[in-house]
């Protein structure tokens, strides 16, 4: 396998995972059962993780699998099971024909606009500070992300920790079963 095949191989896999992501996403929104939908969404996330890795964001790819597919989606499935919603409800939760049609038109309009905007020559360099993603730097793959995270974005990082703390507290308060005395 010569080097001349590498771009082709790369492109093939890129399209493969891209199409897989889109196909899995389509399957996700059309499933009636929440569990099936969750499974298809997890598929999308795996495909996206592959794309991340292919775009030199190996750390993010790992995080995608661990945090998204491994933690968040598990919580979703867990809630679905907890509430015993695993089976498709007798009354369909999908809107009627006209609702789907109009939603489709709206989606196409949105897509067209987004694509038109990505074609637009916008100089993003003006608004985004350039921090080179050093793969071969001293910190390795993780250092490329960790460097900016703990230097330029330290305050935001600390704030997210507070956000998480609040989210935990909120989830506990909301999820707690209320006693009769509290129910006043």
């Amino acid at each position: 396998m010569g080097n001349e095949f590498l771009p082709l191989l790369y492109s093939f896999h890129f399209y493969l995972f891209g199409l897989l992501a889109i196909a899995a996403a389509l399957a996700f929104v059309t499933r009636k059962s929440p569990v099936a939908a969750a499974m298809w969404l997890i598929t999308t996330m795996f495909a996206l993780a592959a794309l991340y890795v292919m775009m030199d964001a190996q750390f993010i790819g790992v995080m995608q699998v661990l945090v998204y597919a491994g933690a968040i989606m598990v919580v979703f499935v867990f809630v679905v099971m907890l509430l015993n919603l695993g089976h498709p409800s007798e009354i369909s939760d999908i809107r009627g024909k006209w609702g789907r049609l109009i939603a489709g038109f709206l989606g196409i309009a949105l897509l067209a606009e987004i694509l038109a905007l990505t074609r637009d020559p916008m100089d993003l360099r003006l608004v985004v500070p350039v921090i080179p993603a050093t793969v071969n730097g001293t910190g390795g793959i993780i250092g490329g992300v960790a460097g900016p995270l703990f230097r330029e974005y330290l305050l935001a990082f600390e704030l997210t920790s507070i956000l998480l703390l609040i989210a935990i507290a909120g989830a506990v308060v909301l999820g707690r079963k209320r006693s009769a005395a509290d129910a006043r």
Partner: peptide, 25 residues
């Protein structure tokens, strides 16, 4: 453009986790 985008992905994931916790609750 550099590693900033990946940093933001980390933030988005964090927020998504928080959102999932509160939303599901």
């Amino acid at each position: 453009y550099g590693a900033t985008g990946q940093v933001f992905v980390v933030f988005v994931m964090t927020v998504a986790a928080a959102e999932a916790a509160v939303g599901l609750a």
